[in-house]
Design a protein around this nucleic acid. Structure first.
Lengths: 206, 206
DNA sequence: GAAAAAGATTGAATGAGTTCAATTTTTAAG
DNA sequence: CTTAAAAATTGAACTCATTCAATCTTTTTC
C-alpha cells in the first residue's frame, strides 16, 4: 500500500519542487515569494517550511537535478574518451557547459552558488558540494584513464592535475554566470586555451 | 575649504564603515543589525542606505580593504621572486593565505563571496571582482617574470598557466572557508601538491 | 472500531532589511 | 543678509522570510 501518509508526502514534495522551479524560471528567484510557491503547490507557507529549511534550499534542490544529469552524461565520455588529452578534456568540459543553461538561468546559478558558499552546513548545500566533488572526480578519472592508456606520461600525479583542471573550469563557470552578456562559446574557448599548455606538457611523446 | 558637506560625507562614510566592520567581527554578520550599525555610527538607518545599497555592500567593502593589503604585499615578492617555479608560487600563495584570516573570519569571507556572486552588478561587488582579477594578474606577472629569467621554458603560454594556478588557489580557498575546521596548513599543503606537476613540467631544464 | 499517540498542516505573529515622503541642512544666487 | 534650490537625513511604514502554538489527519494500540 506504501501508506497514505507517505504517498501524500511524496506528492506534496513534488508539487512544491515543481511550483518553485517553474516560478523561479518565470519571475526570477528574488521575486518568487514563498507565499506564491506555496499557493501554486496548494499547501500552506508552514508546510513549505516542513519540506525545505529555507528558500535557498529549494533552489539548490532544482540545481542539483541538473548537475545530476550532466554527471550521468559525462560517464560515457569517460568510459570511451577521444584519443588525445586536449580533445578528451574539451569534449567532457564542453558537455558540462552546453547543458548548464538548458533548465537554469544565470541568475539561478548565481543564487545557488551563493547559498552553497554561505550556508555550507545546510543539507542541500552539502548535496551541491557533493555534486561538485563528483564532477571533480570525473575529471580526475578521465585523467587516470588516459594515463592507463599511455596517453599521459607515467610519473605524473593525474589526480592533482585533474583537480586543478576542475577547479579552473569551475571558477571560469562562476565568472561566466556573473557576467550576464558572456557567451558559452567564449567560455569554452577561454578554458580550452587555459588547458592547452597543461595538456601538451603531460602528453606522452609518441 | 573642501566644503562642509564633503567633509561631513567623508566622515559619516568612515564612521559607518568602522561601525560595521567592528560589529561584524564582534557579533558576526547575521547578528549585526543595520539599526545597530547605524546607532554606533551615529546616523539614522535611512542614512546608512544613502551610503551603501544594502547590508552586503558594506561587508564586501570591508573585505576589499583586506585584499588590497595582500596585493600590496605581493608586489615585492613578484619583483624579487625565489629561484624555482615551485618555491616562487609557494611563497606568493602562502602570503595570500596567511593574511586571509587576520582581520576577517571565515563567516565574513563566505558572506562576501556569496554576495559578490549573487549581485555582481553592485558597485562593491564589482570592486571585489576587480581585486580578484588583480590577484590573478599578479600570479600571471610572476610567471612571466620567471619566464623572462629563463626559469620557465619559452614557448609556454605563461598567462594561461598563471590563470589556471590562480583559479585553482581561489577555488581551494573557497572550499577552505566553507569548511570551518579546515586549517591553513592543510590548505597550503594541498595547493602546493596540486601545483607541483605543473611547476615541474614548465620548468626549463638546466 | 474507539481511543490514544504520532505526524503534519496551518496561518497569524515576529523580526530584520529596505523604502520613501517629509523635514532639515548646506550651498548658491541675487 | 535673504531666499531659493539642491543635497542629505530621518524614522515610521512596508515587505517578506521564517517561526510556532493550535489544530487536524493518519496510524497504531487494545
Amino acid at each position: 500500500m506504501a501508506g497514505l501518509r507517505a504517498r501524500q508526502k511524496a506528492d506534496r514534495n513534488r508539487r512544491i519542487l515543481e511550483a518553485a522551479s517553474s516560478l523561479f524560471r518565470e519571475v526570477g528567484y528574488d521575486s518568487a515569494r514563498i507565499e506564491d510557491i506555496a499557493e501554486r503547490a496548494e499547501v500552506s507557507v508552514g508546510t513549505f517550511y516542513n519540506y525545505y529549511e529555507n528558500k535557498g534550499d529549494i533552489l539548490v534542490a532544482t540545481v542539483s537535478m541538473e548537475v545530476e544529469e550532466v554527471l550521468e552524461a559525462g560517464k560515457s565520455i569517460v568510459e570511451n574518451p577521444p584519443a588525445s588529452v586536449g580533445e578528451a578534456l574539451e569534449v567532457l568540459i564542453n558537455q558540462y557547459y552546453d547543458h548548464s543553461l538548458v533548465y537554469l538561468t544565470k541568475e539561478m546559478w548565481r543564487t545557488a552558488m551563493a547559498i552553497s558558499i554561505q550556508q555550507p552546513k545546510s543539507p542541500f548545500s552539502r548535496r551541491y558540494t557533493d555534486l561538485d566533488n563528483r564532477l571533480c572526480d570525473q575529471i580526475a578519472a578521465l585523467m587516470q584513464k588516459l594515463q592507463l592508456r599511455g596517453v599521459i606520461m607515467t610519473g605524473i600525479d593525474a589526480v592533482a592535475v585533474g583537480q586543478m583542471v576542475f577547479n579552473n573550469l569551475n571558477m571560469m563557470f562562476t565568472e561566466f554566470v556573473k557576467d550576464e552578456p558572456a557567451t558559452l562559446e567564449a567560455l569554452k574557448d577561454n578554458v580550452a586555451r587555459q588547458n592547452r599548455p597543461l595538456a601538451t606538457l603531460i602528453s606522452a611523446p609518441r
